[in-house]
Nucleic acid binder design. Structure first.
Length: 166
DNA sequence: GCCAACGTTGGC
DNA sequence: GCCAACGTTGGC
């Protein structure tokens, strides 16, 4: 079993949305490296941190799991979908892929990016590297558990996120 | 709102 | 195949 971090902008799709939907396809990945992670390495049962990017205090909001392995991202051949349509992808020869994820847990205390930066045990995480923009990154089991441990403690940042992160 | 870092595009 | 120009991401 592997561990991952999935980025999403809460304005577009948040962990709360996944909590409501229970299961959703992770569509719209249009980066080859992230696609390859999904298509080649993500397996049913893998565990993912759900990260909220591009908000006041970026943070890990909770956990979801992979419940269906990679299959073609059909939003790529929906011409009505301005953001996701890509004429290079067809049902016969799909270019982009997605997996299905299921809601698992919403953290009691959200784990804020600035708090993650201060944690030496997380210093190798790709998400913390300057300029890293990959929306899907592998993480280690230790990093996963460290972030879960952090979610059990309230911080100034986690309290702020609970009150006004959107 | 700014801008650094990165990925992609396309001319040559 | 190189690389400049451009667009996007996403933290700050």
């Amino acid at each position: 079993m592997k561990y991952w971090l999935l980025k999403s902008e809460p304005n577009a799709y948040s962990l709360e949305d996944l909590k409501r939907d229970k299961v959703e396809h992770w569509d719209g990945v249009r980066n080859y490296q992230a696609r390859n992670f999904m298509r080649d390495d993500m397996k049913k049962g893998d565990v993912c941190l759900f990260y909220h990017s591009n908000c006041k205090i970026p943070h890990v909001a909770g956990v979801c799991t992979v419940v269906k392995e990679a299959y073609p991202d059909f939003t790529a051949w929906d011409i009505e979908n301005e953001c996701h349509f890509d004429s290079r992808s067809t049902p016969e020869n799909p270019l982009w892929f997605m997996v299905d994820v299921a809601f698992k847990e919403e953290f009691k205390h959200k784990v804020a990016l600035p708090d993650m930066r201060k944690n030496k045990k997380l210093q190798d995480m790709l998400i913390l590297r300057k300029g890293n923009r990959l929306s899907i990154t592998p993480i280690s089991v230790d990093e996963f558990h460290e972030i879960c441990a952090m979610s059990r403690k309230e911080t100034i940042n986690s309290r702020k996120i609970d009150t006004f992160y959107i």
